[in-house]
């Protein structure tokens, strides 16, 4: 009997954790999208007011905002200082490196990749216009991500706990 109760506990805990993990994906995506927007706004300021060079601006932003978005900027900025490949190559490689670490979906990555293709390729006005466009796109995705989070966050959490309990009862 004792073993059975122990087993049930393990099942409930495991299933709750699984539910939380799935729910966290939705929470993290919202946070990452909003952090990316902060980073891009900072980049816009660097372009507009300081005319900073891209590698140093990226490293500075990466260091100050931290998190996965900060890491992306930091990695990209560092690789640019090596001057061995093109900007879009560096940006795409950095995105690939970050892929296992974040909860962004394919549509988010696509926006970021498009951003990398244009980065550093036009005059200041063009760059700022392009950052604003990317910011708007990321904002749209964030709105959608928030809606998804409202819907699925609680659902997966409850489903994890309740599913675990149901399974434990059946097995008892």
């Amino acid at each position: 009997m004792f073993v059975k109760i122990l087993n049930s506990f393990v099942i409930v805990i495991a299933s709750t954790l699984l539910g939380r993990e799935l729910a966290n994906k939705y929470v993290n995506r919202v946070n990452e999208l909003s952090a990316l927007q902060v980073a891009l706004s900072r980049l816009e300021t660097e372009f507009e007011h300081y005319a900073s060079h891209l590698p140093e601006a990226m490293i500075r932003i990466g260091n100050s905002i931290g998190g996965t978005a900060g890491k992306l900027f930091y990695i990209a900025g560092q690789s640019l200082t090596e001057k061995s490949s093109t900007l879009s190559e560096v940006w795409n490689t950095s995105l690939d490196l970050m892929k296992p670490e974040w909860s962004l979906r394919q549509e988010d990555s696509k926006i970021l990749r498009r951003f990398g293709d244009q980065l550093g390729n036009s005059d200041r006005e063009g760059q700022i216009r392009f950052i604003r466009l990317t910011l708007a796109q990321l904002h749209d995705e964030e709105v959608k991500a928030r809606a998804a989070r409202e819907k699925y966050d609680k659902m997966y959490r409850s489903l994890g706990l309740l599913g675990g309990i149901a399974l434990a009862i059946i097995l008892l």
Binding site: L87, R124, Q127
Partner: peptide, 16 residues
């Protein structure tokens, strides 16, 4: 394209 990026330190916008 690459040369332009490299000579401008990937920051052609800063060289108006």
């Amino acid at each position: 394209r690459n040369i332009l990026q490299l000579i401008s330190d990937y920051s052609i916008y800063a060289f108006e």
